[in-house]
Simulated scan of single mutants.
Amino acid sequence: MKKYVAELVGTFILVFFGCGTAVVAGDKVGIVGIAFAFGFALIGAAYGIGPISGCHINPAVSLGVWSAGRMKTGDMIGYWIGQFCGAILGAGVLSLIIRGVGGGYDISTNGLGQNGWGAGYQGGYNITSAIVFEFVATLIFVVVILGSTQKAAPGGFAGLAIGITLVAIHICGIHVTGVSVNPARSFGPALLVGGKAISQVWLFLVVPSVAGVVGGLLFRLGALEASQQAETKEKREVVSA
């Protein structure tokens, strides 16, 4: 149960600070500031709850870990529950705060940092662009996560590498979809905003999940998993140093 609670807390942190920066201060800090908010929130969560749950805080990541053979099905479902609950709570607390702004705040009109595509959303990119970006970005994200947490990877740096990658993904793709690469992060705000946000959320549930499975299979099938020989060689080099 500790692992599931940790995932709830971590996902709350990601949504609250990432989406919160977009909603409260997006016009002040711009795309780069929002990107760093998501990345730094992830880094903080990684070192805060990583020792407990591994800090997936993303159903697509948990699916990738599962398809890579590093996680049991029961744990994956528990992680999903924690992640979606954390995202909903994060969006809920953000909505309470933003409603207190002078002059009021209409969530259905101004949103909560939800994802989307098409006319009237960010750069107005079409659904094809949204699907391609979310698939490629999530696949890259999952590959970085699985690669930086495998046994042959340098210890202690995974959280930093993953957070920096998330920053780069946001800088690249905020104008395309607002950047999901995380079904829970998309679902929480969309649930509260409703309307177009909830009608489009299917894409951010399905596409990142498919990418997560593909990323996991690349490791399970050995295409990106470090060989035992490479791991042994690295251990010897460390000992020699």
Rank of each mutant, 00 (worst) to 15 (best):
Q150I: 01
V201L: 05
G123E: 04
F204S: 01
N110V: 00
L191D: 03
V167I: 15
T149C: 01
A168L: 15
G123C: 03
V193S: 06
H175C: 02
T177A: 04
N182C: 04
T109D: 11
Y121S: 00
V210T: 06
T149E: 00
G188F: 13
Q122C: 03
P154M: 11
G195Q: 15
K196V: 12
G104Y: 10
Q114M: 13
I145G: 00
I169N: 05
G116Q: 04
A158N: 10
G155T: 14
V136Y: 11
S108T: 14
V206Y: 03
V136M: 15
G147W: 13
V142F: 09
A119I: 13
V179H: 09
P189C: 13
A168C: 14
L205E: 07
E134I: 03
V167G: 02
I107S: 06
G118C: 06
H170S: 02
I171C: 12
L146A: 07
L112C: 04
A153G: 04
V144Y: 10
G178R: 01
G118S: 13
V167N: 03
G118N: 12
G104S: 12
P183G: 03
T165N: 15
T177R: 06
L192T: 09
Q150W: 02
G104I: 05
A184N: 09
A130S: 10
G120D: 02
Q150C: 03
G103V: 07
Y125S: 11
I198H: 08
V210Q: 08
V201I: 07
S186W: 07
K151T: 12
G188N: 07
G178M: 01
P154I: 08
A197W: 03
V181K: 02
F187Y: 13
G120Y: 04
W202L: 09
L139V: 06
I145E: 02
V136S: 09
F135G: 01
Y121N: 01
G188C: 04
P189I: 03
A168M: 14
S180L: 11
F133W: 09
G195L: 11
A190M: 12
V132N: 04
I127E: 09
G116A: 14
Q114W: 06
Q150R: 11
A190V: 05
G173F: 06
S108L: 08
V179N: 04
F187I: 05
A197V: 08
L166Y: 13
I107W: 06
G188I: 07
Q114L: 01
G194H: 12
L192V: 07
R185W: 01
Q114V: 04
A161F: 14
L192C: 10
A168D: 01
Q200R: 12
L203F: 10
V210D: 12
G104K: 13
V143C: 14
L160D: 07
A190N: 02
S108N: 14
F135Q: 07
S199T: 13
A153I: 03
A190D: 05
T165I: 11
S148E: 02
G113W: 05
A153Y: 06
I169F: 03
S209T: 15
D106N: 15
V207F: 02
R185E: 00
G116P: 00
L203W: 06
I198C: 10
